[in-house]
Design a protein around this nucleic acid. Structure first.
Lengths: 153, 153
DNA sequence: CCTGAAACACCTCAAGT
DNA sequence: ACTTGAGGTGTTTCAGG
């Protein structure tokens, strides 16, 4: 994993803000022609610096306005139990993110739904069906102050 | 905000997975020609269903392997204090996400850094400089079980 | 590692159904 | 609301510096 130069970093900064920018536009910003920009981007893709290109959707237009963060602690922490929990969580389509944490709780879950009623149903019918959950604590997003997929590089 | 039909939803599902898919490829999946797909995408963009197109980067390649979640409660909750806190948080480039929450704490922050040492410095030099922070509790991601920008639509 | 040019594919839109 | 078709533009490749 060799080091990136300033041009590479500049390209990454542009693409993580707006991946629709053409190689030509990026080339102009960097005072280059399209070819080197094209080749650098391909290299950044192949080396794994760029994971994928996606469209970010507006959740409020798509009836997913309610975002909940759910903190879960397990009752038993044997490896088998943890892996089973993880695979069961991955099967829940409503769960957008799940992290195994170090701290007072074991897992953070981020869940997008249409309403609090749906969240109630989600907990009642899906989460509570997962064995080995000890503590379950829910938080709801009142307002997104700031949210980006960009890294400060 | 009129309703989306199945074709629109199918297009959104494809684009939030891979925005590099060409209109031609999408058209083939949907048994259409490129033109109607093109027009639908433009409409979805203009109506705000699609917010933006971005490249998702690999944080481990970019020295941002440490992800912390920081839970903050304010000491005073007057409107002025909250807004001041929010604007100060927005100025911190390391903070990728910040949500005002309903629950036992006021704010969730997601922070990407290179090391725990950097996190220590971040808290010491930047977070602790913000007035009005009462409680500050840190959690660290041990493992990303699941993480996507997609919504289940 | 870059430039410039040529070939190719896709985007974009107008006209027709 | 979709199809066809054609012109414009961006992508991709490559010889040469």
């Amino acid at each position: 994993m060799e080091k990136l130069d300033d041009v590479d970093l500049h390209i990454l900064r542009i693409l993580q803000k707006d991946s629709k920018k053409t190689t030509k536009e990026i080339a102009k910003i960097l005072n280059l022609t399209a070819s080197p920009v094209y080749e650098r981007i391909r290299r950044l893709e192949n080396k794994g610096y760029i994971k994928k290109y996606v469209a970010l959707l507006n959740k409020t237009h798509l009836n997913k306005a309610v975002t909940a963060v759910c903190m879960v602690s397990l009752r038993y922490h044997n490896e088998g139990f943890i892996e089973k929990f993880e695979s069961q969580i991955k099967a829940l389509k409503e769960v957008q993110e799940c992290y195994h944490m170090a701290g007072k709780v074991d897992f953070f879950l981020k869940i997008n739904l249409e309403s609090l009623t749906d969240y109630h149903e989600f907990v009642r019918l899906k989460l509570s069906k997962i064995e080995n959950i000890g503590v379950l604590e829910s938080y709801f997003v009142l307002k997104e102050i700031h949210s980006t997929t960009e890294f400060y590089i």
